[in-house]
């Protein structure tokens, strides 16, 4: 009886001592704590296009490029300058084309795809950005298929290179760049086609 009581007393006092002394600040797991911070990316959405390259770890990373303005009066495809910028053809006040108009016409999309295929700039490469798309001289062209679907249309992207051998990341680069150029919410489905056939329709929603 007394021996058992002794044992119980010892155990309890040990427990108390342990609970008092045994803990300070401990390591913890990673704990999620709320939303991310929302920063502003220059230039404003109306005057930029997003081009998706890949980070050093293969994660898609957007870069934003200025859309030169005002836009040329002609709705024909703009001819890029040697440094990649768009030529300035000012016609003066009253002749500007709003970027949305240009966007709706698919001009911006083709432009963005052109930038994508030309690869990361030296500054971007310095930050570890890269691309998995082949560098070719040709330019892809985007056509909008009017399906009447409520969640945006379907885009047909004609690439000047074979597409069936592309990595999923490369396809994602094409899809996201095209979808965001067409629509700020990137709701469109994109069908990537090449000389060797077409890929199944895809959306830009995470890789």
């Amino acid at each position: 009886m007394t021996r058992r009581a002794q044992a119980v007393a010892a155990a309890l006092s040990g427990l108390a001592a342990l609970s008092l002394a045994g803990c300070g600040i401990r390591d913890s797991d990673v704990v999620e704590a709320g939303a991310a911070a929302t920063v502003a990316v220059a230039p404003p959405p109306e005057f930029r296009m997003l081009v998706y390259f890949l980070g050093p770890d293969g994660r898609p990373m957007p870069v934003s490029r200025d859309i030169a303005r005002p836009f040329p009066a002609s709705t024909a495809l703009p001819v890029r300058n040697a440094d990649g910028s768009l030529p300035y053809e000012g016609f003066g006040t009253g002749y500007e084309i709003s970027p949305d108009t240009a966007r709706r016409a698919g001009v911006v999309t083709d432009m963005a795809l052109g930038v994508l295929l030309s690869g990361p700039s030296p500054a971007e490469a310095a930050a570890g950005l890269r691309t998995e798309l082949p560098r070719t001289g040709g330019r892809p062209h985007v056509e909008e298929e009017r399906t009447g679907a409520p969640d945006g249309g379907r885009l047909r992207l004609r690439a000047p290179f074979p597409v069936t051998g592309l990595t999923p990341r490369a396809v994602h680069q094409l899809v996201c760049t095209a979808a965001f150029a067409e629509d700020p919410a990137a709701r469109s489905q994109v069908v990537v086609t090449g000389p060797d056939g077409a890929l199944p329709p895809a959306r830009c929603d995470g890789l």
Partner: peptide, 27 residues
């Protein structure tokens, strides 16, 4: 998402906080 973690290194406890930056694609 934002997240944090407590790390004890060489006996000193640290709080590390990570806040990723996102942006809106349209206003």
């Amino acid at each position: 998402h934002s997240s944090f973690q407590r790390v004890v290194k060489d006996g000193t406890p640290y709080l590390t906080v990570a806040v990723p930056a996102v942006f809106r694609t349209h206003a």
